[in-house]
């Protein structure tokens, strides 16, 4: 019995060490991911789908990692201000209107953007909201 307890405490302390070793960025990423997911469900999922699959030709998928990478500096602007131009996603042309979301604060935009760019097969990593704020100030 004693042995079990000792083993258990040992395990626990290892877990504790690992958790505390995680750097601040990983913790931030997790926070952004979980808040971003809530925003995505409430505001984006209707058009872009639960798994980022899009909706026919009405709304493009969010699974084109190449598009999301090459356009990574304007994603925040698209999310906040919407879009109404011709976009090529997965080799197909989309030109419907995406609405603006003026109600999203910079931090919300950052969180939902980090969620999108790290879900559905995308893996861009963390972007702090200060950087997103700067992007948003320079939207065209």
């Amino acid at each position: 019995m004693r042995k079990y307890i000792i083993n258990f405490i040992f395990l626990l302390s290892i877990v504790a060490i690992i958790v505390s070793c995680q750097n601040q960025e990983t913790i931030d990423l997790q926070n952004y991911m979980s808040n971003g997911k809530d925003i995505y469900k409430a505001k984006c999922q209707n058009c872009h789908g639960e798994n980022g699959e899009g909706l026919g030709q009405l709304a493009p998928p969010l699974t084109d990692s190449v598009f999301l990478k090459t356009n990574k500096n304007r994603l925040a602007c698209i999310i906040k201000n919407g879009a109404n131009e011709s976009l090529i996603i997965h080799g197909k042309e989309y030109k419907e209107k995406m609405p603006a979301f003026p109600e999203l604060a910079d931090i919300d935009v950052a969180q939902v953007m980090v969620y999108v760019t790290n879900s559905f097969g995308n893996k861009q990593g963390f972007v702090p909201y200060t950087e997103v704020s700067t992007q948003l100030q320079n939207c065209k």
Binding site: Q45, N46, C47, G56, L58, K97, P99
Partner: peptide, 15 residues
């Protein structure tokens, strides 16, 4: 057609 809230979900499901 220009509804950006519930209609896409309705028609995704109705599809």
């Amino acid at each position: 057609t220009s509804c950006t809230t519930i209609c896409p979900t309705m028609h995704r499901n109705l599809m």
